[in-house]
């Protein structure tokens, strides 16, 4: 390319070799900022490698079985991550199911319906949800959410006609459960999903809206037929970004999920997630092997969130390009 060919010589042009003083400052500055920029990929690689190294003893012993074995017995030195993977997926997916309708409702409300005087305060409140530290959610969950679940919500769900007798809502209602984790996660990922959705909805060109309105569509028909389809891949990207957050969310989940390595069909049963097993056991891990198994959980979590985030970025990026 002519352009790159023309820019390359600029670096070695007389710029660097003046008789009246070499401008080494520019070269130093360039190298320093480049080093800062390179530090990002370097750190990412370093993190992945170090965690794989730490996880290696467990991964090499259990191999693929680490993902499928459902026995996590510290005393016996048996480590299978299946219960954690199950708990992570169930709590996150359930959280998304709970959060998405509300998040989209807020996003559509804010971008399409809200009167200007209400838009700012509601947006601010929703953003505030994202600012609350995870541990504060956990604290609130322990002392407010769990009692409500135990005394009201769980008995109610269990008393439902058909669903109540399904395995989904069976077993004793202690409070600490997959359900509790999913609810707190839903509250926590809601602002992320709604923020991304709002952005992509606002990016829908006016011409799309006006075209629908000009055809005689009502506001709702315009949103359903013109706005949402246009922004669809971005909204899905936002939901997947929320999934990434939910998968890796640690503290609130650790405080509410019950921390027991079992696979149970009941949402009332306690569970474990990849993040919460690390938070709960890592500092007290007694054997090298236990540590390595926890590291391996971290490696699985890292891999999954990497994939999920890449997918989300790709989807969100598509709206920007598709909208041109």
């Amino acid at each position: 390319m002519t352009e790159s060919a023309a820019t390359v010589p600029a670096a070695s042009s007389p710029d660097d070799a003046g008789i009246e003083g070499r401008s080494t400052g520019d070269r130093v500055y360039r190298v320093l900022t480049l080093a800062c920029a390179i530090s990002i990929p370097a750190l990412l690689g370093f993190i992945a490698i170090e965690i794989l190294i730490g996880a290696w003893p467990a991964l090499s012993k259990f191999g693929f079985g680490f993902l499928t074995n459902s026995t996590w017995d510290v005393g016996a030195g048996q480590f299978g991550a299946a219960p954690m993977i199950y708990g992570t997926i169930v709590s996150s997916v359930l959280a998304l199911l709970l959060a998405t309708p509300f998040a989209l409702g807020v996003a559509i409300f804010l971008s399409e319906f809200a009167p200007p005087w209400l838009r700012q305060p509601v947006a601010f409140l929703v953003d505030l949800l994202a600012a609350i530290p995870s541990v504060v959610y956990g604290l609130w969950g322990i002392f407010v959410l769990l009692p409500i679940l135990r005394d009201t919500v769980m008995p109610f769900l269990a008393s439902l006609p058909v669903l109540g007798s399904s395995p989904l809502f069976s077993g004793p209602a202690y409070g600490n459960s997959l359900l509790a984790a999913a609810i707190i996660l839903a509250i926590m990922v809601l602002p992320y999903i709604s923020a991304v959705s709002r952005e992509v909805l606002m990016a829908v060109p006016r011409s799309q809206r006006e075209a629908a309105l000009a055809l005689g569509a009502t506001r709702w028909e315009m949103i359903r037929d013109a706005v949402v389809p246009y922004a669809r891949s971005g909204i899905i990207g936002g939901i997947i970004l929320g999934l990434g957050r939910a998968l890796g969310e640690t503290m609130a989940v650790t405080m509410l999920i019950g921390n027991r390595a079992e696979v149970s069909a009941s949402l009332f049963a306690p569970g474990y997630t990849l993040a919460s097993v690390i938070a709960n056991e890592f500092a007290e891990a007694s054997t090298e092997f236990h540590t390595a198994a926890l590291m391996a959980c971290g490696a699985v979590l890292l891999g999954v969130t990497l994939l999920v985030n890449m997918l989300a970025r790709w989807l969100v990026g598509r709206v920007g390009r598709g909208g041109a």
Binding site: P14, A17, G18, E20
Partner: peptide
């Protein structure tokens, strides 16, 4: 000013 060794800053 485009000669060798000339510093554009100067």
């Amino acid at each position: 000013i485009y000669g060798r060794g000339v510093n554009p800053i100067e």
